[in-house]
């Protein structure tokens, strides 16, 4: 009798996850191959689809690089320094998680729009288009994924403390050497974790990118936008094939995170 409660609870949780997550996602994969391999291969021969996947890879790549470099910098600033406005900055870092991506897209369009944006007009005058162009997509994707690296590193930095860094300094290491040889190894798993999450989030971004890209087919259409386009045009295999590609990236990312987590838990126990 004592075991019944947990068993019921477990069944509820499993049913919930299957109905909401596992089953729909698995349908994406089966849907892609509903009519065999040929339509799927056709989809990946379509230059428009390839272009979209390439654009997504570029945007996600930049988002990961920018968020890693600035994420480490901002996390160090927030944890290791005290300055007026520090708490405001910490709250600001969480904003992209709280605000709808569509709102983010609109905000970026307002600032960088070539017609009337505060920064967009001067940039357009020197020949640099942000909105309806790759830089805008990179910007939106980076914005959306901004907190992920920072939030992963901050608790690690706080737990490690400053004594190791101070010891390194007293042993003759300058700030850069101390960062490279002491701080970076200490936060490396948190950093990898954050980068993987950032990548998964960046690859899947839809709303903000839709607003800033203008959805110009073959030019500013990312993979997620292509999925929508194909689906609307009743190309179900095509939509499912691209969707399955995106889902695979996320699943691989989550698998890596799971492995890392198991590893760190073993290390600390």
């Amino acid at each position: 009798m004592a075991r019944r409660g947990p068993v019921v609870l477990r069944a509820v949780v499993i049913a919930y996850l299957v109905l909401l997550v596992a089953w729909p996602v698995s349908l994406v994969f089966t849907g892609a191959f509903a009519n065999g391999l040929a339509p799927v291969l056709d989809t990946f021969r379509d230059p428009l689809v390839l272009n979209a996947l390439r654009l997504t890879a570029i945007a996600a790549g930049w988002a990961v690089v920018l968020n890693t470099v600035f994420g480490v910098g901002v996390a160090l600033l927030l944890v290791r320094r005290t300055f007026p406005g520090r708490r405001l900055l910490a709250a600001l870092v969480d904003l992209p998680l709280a605000v709808s991506p569509v709102v983010v897209g609109l905000a970026i369009a307002l600032v960088y729009g070539a017609r009337s944006g505060w920064l967009g007009v001067p940039l357009a005058n020197v020949g640099l288009d942000i909105i309806y162009s790759t830089p805008g997509i990179v910007l939106a994707t980076t914005f959306i994924a901004l907190p992920l690296v920072i939030r992963e590193i901050i608790p690690v930095l706080e737990e490690v403390g400053t004594e190791q860094e101070q010891a390194a300094r007293s042993l003759g290491a300058g700030p850069w050497t101390t960062f490279r040889r002491i701080t970076l190894p200490a936060i490396r798993w948190g950093l990898v974790y954050g980068v993987v999450l950032c990548l998964a989030r960046a690859v899947g971004e839809f709303g903000a990118v839709k607003v800033v890209s203008g959805n110009l087919i073959g030019r500013t259409q990312t993979a997620t936008l292509t999925v929508e386009e194909l689906y609307m045009n009743f190309d179900r295999e095509g939509a499912f094939a691209v969707a399955a590609t995106l889902a695979s990236v996320s699943i691989i990312a989550i698998a890596i995170v799971g492995l890392l987590r198991a590893r760190t838990e073993r290390r600390t126990s």
């Binding site: 101070q166 010891a167 300094r169 007293s170 042993l171 003759g172 290491a173 300058g174």
Partner: peptide
Amino acid sequence: PQKRGVGF
């Protein structure tokens, strides 16, 4: 600290 020649 790295220029003081101290061990801590």
